[in-house]
Design a protein around this nucleic acid. Structure first.
Lengths: 395, 395
DNA sequence: TAAAACTTTATAATTTTTTTAAAAAGATTT
DNA sequence: AAATCTTTTTAAAAAAATTATAAAGTTTTA
């Protein structure tokens, strides 16, 4: 590798450190980058000359001479477009390098299943949003997109949705159409990335993040980094054979975890129970509209509605059985419950803990902590932004 | 880190490369160590001066000037004591740095369960073997020991067997008693290490090794290295909740994979079938001695005995269901069937493949290859030797 | 078949980076 | 308040990586 390339790589790396922790000292940067202090010092001086970062006065003392601290320069702005796609709705927001919202969140109903115009609609939506934002493309570092399905971030393809005819990858197609660097990844991987960088998993090495949403996803942090498996599809937690039920799963098999524990299943079951006469605070909306939105269901559970709580608990118990398997195989330090289902976190914890008590070797279960995410509501968007930061070039 | 330490580290690293592949060129060493050619050249010259390695003439041409190749110097010998402990028998052998057997394999019956004199007997056995070998301790690099149970290689403890009273770790205790560096690890981890360095997993990055023995173990290769989990106990495959049966497992739970698929179970079942009148080539030994040794059972299966094959197939199907879970979660490049049960490899493959067809998403299953180990019979001993090589100091 | 063109290895010269040492600045103790 | 201890910063020396060049084979081509 040439000298210039290595220097550019270090510049990128240092800027990333400032993205994750805004104020840092030279000593801290040297520790994190595993580079010597003189080298880090001169690289930082270069970044200051180019306007990327600025001096931020002396840091608090740690028992000796106080160190100068540095931070990103607010004047030299760069922006990130973060996109979170789910089965029903697509969300987009523009962040700055301090993770502040620069252009407000916009949502669009966009059903993924059986939608021939999907890719085209998706591109138009993003085009409009970005051009409407008024930010010049030269200031946008890239577009990060999280989406469900079998996604390989490395190859830039999705084998489930947004299928294209030709030989071009989804990533390249979007990049060409939108005129900006595009990075795609599986929704659960991005949520795990957000938890790793900003949430409960910060600075930890072996963390599993369970994404409770329309399916049950899994993002894996191994040795301090996202683990993707040899061909990029690790973490297909949804379809491990666990359930005793004989129901057919969308994947064509029986006994998948997802069949009896996803949000789709929970809502169907809540509807069925109401149809057969169960009373609930969700009744009115369901009876008048015929629909039962996920948010309504989750909020009902949160506020103690007995039907919603019971449905959620049963599903969570099965997730807990799956988590028991994960604990045995991976021996993680921490398991984070995240995704939109995590808003009902407290209700999930009890049945999950109960399943762990039943299915885990107690001694092993003690080695793993279970936590509910604190950044769940915008974890996927944060993760999408992180994906851009990790892969773009600052120059 | 000081300069001398770094240089010693590089020397160790280079010697290790020669241990795994005996003839290497300077360019190859530079590539593998990620160090520059001049540095590698001068380090190799130092190793030649100290007698560790020697020039081995020109390597075959690769299209340009032929490179000099080097290899370990047979005169400067160092030896490794490799120990493989299983539930019934303990084996020990001494290898040289070319993995040749220097002192022949010795076996001793040593039952782990309910054996208060275990540790003492074990130490005496090794003491006798080593002193009987006539090799001076100064030439022994260390003792590598693979054993069943919840073992943490890093902490040097076993929570299941060889329990000691005081606060000293098993590793330190053995090291003190035997007067040599001792390294311990879980049997399945060592088998995986052997497969990674010498077997089917050579040079691969994401490989899972299933150890079919008295239990069902799992050794995990992640990103090209042994994965141990955050506290050292990853790969507890035996006790994931999978089986429909209601039998109580030794761990106190129900539904563990191990209950219906380990060698212990298989032999018990074969006995029961013969008791209730099933005919088999194993009958004679069983009827006369009342015992059914594992080797007899496995060989019967290998030579097509219908009872043994049927018992083995049923167990293998369940292992296959467990493997399906692993494929979904880890997306490995390769799964190796190893351990003593792997001698019946061909018979195992069919039911395992069938289970994968039934429980895996086909598209995902295609990404993973399943192979039977070719080094299974002495994989654990090889792994134990590798453990020493990876952790000892050459000086 | 022999010269030219191409590959690869080995060594030397230069540049970069790290290590070590020393100085400066601040906190803590006596 | 002086002395001691910590930590950061700067400077000098040593180590290692690049880059360039030479040497030794292979392959191509006229």
């Amino acid at each position: 590798m040439s000298v210039q390339m290595k220097q550019q790589l270090l510049r990128n790396e240092l800027i990333k450190f400032f993205y994750y922790d805004n104020r840092l000292t030279l000593a801290e940067l040297s520790r994190r980058s595993h580079k010597s202090l003189p080298l880090v010092t001169s690289t930082v001086n270069g970044l200051i000359e180019d306007g990327y970062i600025q001096d931020n006065g002396l840091a608090a003392s740690t028992g000796g001479r106080r160190a100068s601290s540095f931070q990103l320069n607010a004047d030299k702005q760069r922006y990130i477009v973060a996109v979170a796609v789910d089965q029903m709705v697509t969300q987009v927001v523009i962040y700055d390098l301090m993770n502040n919202v620069k252009v407000g969140l916009q949502k669009k109903e966009l059903v993924l299943h059986d939608n021939p115009a999907l890719t085209e609609t998706f591109i138009d939506f993003l085009k409009d949003y970005i051009s409407g934002s008024g930010i010049p493309p030269s200031q946008i570092l890239g577009i990060g997109i999280g989406m469900p399905g079998f996604v390989s971030a490395i190859k830039g393809v999705n084998h489930t949705f947004f299928k294209l005819g030709g030989s071009i990858t989804l990533k390249d197609h979007l990049s060409k159409e939108l005129g900006l660097p595009v990075f795609i990844d599986n929704d659960s991987s991005l949520i795990a990335l957000a938890e790793l960088k900003f949430g409960a998993g910060k600075d930890l090495k072996d963390v599993l993040v369970v994404n409770i949403g329309w399916g049950i996803g899994l993002g894996m942090i191994v040795n301090g980094g996202l683990f993707r498996g040899h061909s990029g599809y690790a973490g297909e937690f949804s379809h491990i054979p666990l359930s005793q039920s004989n129901k057919m799963c969308s994947c064509g098999k029986r006994g998948c975890l997802e069949v009896d524990s996803s949000l789709v299943f929970m809502i169907e079951r809540a509807k069925a129970e109401m149809d057969s006469g169960a009373s609930s605070s969700m009744e009115q909306v369901y009876k008048t509209t015929g629909k039962l939105p996920a948010d309504l269901f989750l909020n009902a559970a949160k506020s103690g509605d007995p039907l919603a709580v019971s449905v959620l608990s049963d599903a969570a118990f099965l997730v807990g059985k799956g988590i028991s398997t994960l604990i045995h195989i991976m021996n993680p330090m921490l398991i984070v419950l995240s995704g939109r289902g995590a808003v009902a976190g407290k209700i999930l914890m009890a049945p999950i803990q109960q399943a762990i008590n039943e299915f885990c070797i107690p001694w092993l279960a003690e080695q793993t902590e279970i936590q509910v995410s604190t950044v769940a509501t915008n974890a996927e968007l944060l993760g999408a932004a992180t994906l851009v930061i990790e892969n773009c070039d600052f120059n």
